[in-house]
């Protein structure tokens, strides 16, 4: 079943036409990867889905409901969590407070339960629960960013370059976590510079070139596509 459907969206920054008639979809249970060079418009698309930016035309539907005009905080409520580029955790809040903010749309006993669930997935965060997030290492900050997004129990999680700035071992760990999340029922929309890693865990992929979808195919085919290999996989 289609969970997220993006149809012919056009996004502008002032006069700059950043996204041209982009359409794609994500089915329930999938990992879909969006790859493309710097400045292709990957982050712009995620921000438009989460409501931080507006599309001029076209529609974004989530679970059959048009969300293209909804406020960002309401979109979270509908079940889309967005781990933004550069993590954007709250550096002056403690680890635990960051997680509580992730559960802002939930109430009561659900919140401490979700905090414990994140702590059991990321024991390092538990050790540092009262520490101000700004004092965490880069890898720990990424764990926190993912943990924070999990707090809203999202059916759909969008991750914008979760491997950025991490050592190879940590990158693998992050991709393991994404696979696990997907295994436990979370649908994933993954934006990555690290295209080979992303495609290796994805079901399908879309290649974005200067704001347009240039190619869409099952991830395996993209991994074997010569043009893709030359442009994005460095071989």
């Amino acid at each position: 079943m289609t969970l997220l459907k993006v149809e012919n969206i056009n996004v502008y920054y002032g006069n700059i036409h950043a996204i041209h008639d982009v359409s794609f979809e994500v089915a329930e249970g999938e990992i879909v990867s969006l790859i493309g060079a710097n400045g292709a418009g990957k982050s712009t698309i995620l921000k438009t889905i989460s409501g931080l930016l507006r599309t001029k035309t076209g529609a974004i539907t989530f679970k059959g409901e048009n969300i293209s005009a909804a406020a960002p905080h309401l979109i979270v409520n509908k079940g889309i969590a967005h781990v933004p580029e550069g993590r954007r955790i709250f550096l002056k809040l403690t680890v635990e407070e960051n997680l509580e903010m992730g559960a802002y749309t939930r109430r009561g006993a659900e919140v401490p339960e979700a905090v414990e669930a994140v702590f059991s997935r990321f024991p390092r965060l538990k050790e540092r629960r009262r520490q101000v997030a700004g004092t965490l290492s880069g890898g720990e900050q990424q764990m926190l960013a993912i943990g924070r997004a999990l707090m809203s129990k999202p059916p759909l999680m969008m991750l914008d370059e979760p491997s950025m700035g991490l050592a190879p071992l940590l990158v693998e760990q992050v991709f393991e976590i994404i696979k696990e999340l997907n295994g436990s029922g979370t649908t994933i929309l993954l934006v990555e510079q690290n295209a080979s890693m992303a495609l290796s865990i994805a079901n399908r992929g879309y290649v974005l070139e200067t704001g347009r979808i240039a190619l869409s195919a099952p991830a395996k085919e993209l991994l074997e596509n010569d043009a893709v290999r030359r442009a994005y996989l460095g071989s």
């Binding site: 989460s50 409501g51 931080l52 406020a71 960002p72 905080h73 979270v76 409520n77 969590a81 967005h82 933004p84 954007r88 955790i89 709250f90 550096l91 002056k92 809040l93 407070e97 509580e100 903010m101 992730g102 802002y104 749309t105 924070r148 809203s152």
Partner: peptide, 24 residues
């Protein structure tokens, strides 16, 4: 309080706060 933490979150990063479901 939850509202107090939201105030601190918004003052640090308005965009990220919105992504948490906080109404600006």
């Amino acid at each position: 309080t939850k509202m107090g933490k939201a105030m601190r979150a918004v003052s640090e990063d308005m965009g990220a706060a919105q992504l948490m479901g906080i109404s600006i």
